[in-house]
Amino acid sequence: MTLEEMFCDLYDKYGKDFNWYLLPLTQADGAFVVELNKEIGQGHFLSGKKIRAVAKCDSNDDVLYVVRSGIGRDIYYMFHLTYSAHNADGFPRYVEFTDLFAVKEFIERSYIEDCM
């Protein structure tokens, strides 16, 4: 399953009210990555890694990022951005996913719980 296929499945299932959208490839290293790097700071385990923003939730500040692991696999992180440069420990909150099936399950469950 690709990211595009995952979102197509969810759009088909939930229609125009589905609250996530894919980010264009031209924005993959744009404003959402800049914001994340500002929020996580130098000491974070993702600091200095090649991070790409791939999807955004319309109804909150959750952004899905992907990082290539050292073993050639993609690891997905969903960060809840705070838009603050001075975050307390534990912020911004995030969830780590090792595959797209886990990402899809999390997004779908969150959508059902929060929006339906």
Rank of each mutant, 00 (worst) to 15 (best):
K49E: 07
G90P: 02
D89R: 09
D114Q: 10
G41C: 06
F91C: 04
K38L: 13
N19D: 15
E105Q: 11
G70N: 12
L22C: 11
C8E: 14
V67T: 01
E39K: 05
S47T: 01
S84C: 12
D29G: 05
A28Y: 11
L22G: 08
N87I: 04
D58F: 15
D89G: 07
T82H: 05
N87P: 02
R93E: 13
Q27D: 15
E113G: 02
G15M: 13
N60F: 12
F97L: 01
H80L: 11
E113Y: 14
F97G: 01
I71F: 13
K13Y: 13
V67F: 03
P92N: 05
S84F: 08
Y11T: 00
D58C: 14
M78S: 07
G72V: 00
M6D: 04
F32K: 05
V34R: 12
E108Q: 13
T26C: 15
D99H: 10
G41H: 07
E108H: 05
E4Y: 09
F101E: 05
C115N: 11
L22Q: 09
H80A: 07
S84Y: 05
I112Y: 08
Y11I: 08
H86Y: 09
Y14E: 00
E96P: 01
V34N: 10
D61P: 01
A31W: 10
G41M: 05
V33I: 01
N87M: 05
I107M: 11
Y11S: 04
I107Q: 00
T26I: 14
D12F: 15
I51R: 08
R93H: 06
D61N: 12
C115I: 11
L81D: 02
E35F: 03
D58P: 00
K104Q: 15
H44G: 05
S59T: 12
L25R: 08
Y94C: 06
M6Y: 06
Y83H: 13
R109D: 15
T82F: 06
C115E: 14
H86K: 10
G15W: 15
K16G: 09
V67E: 01
K13I: 14
P24F: 13
R109Q: 12
G15A: 14
R73T: 08
R109C: 14
A88D: 06
D17N: 13
K56C: 14
F101R: 00
N87D: 01
F79T: 01
C115D: 10
Q42W: 07
D114S: 15
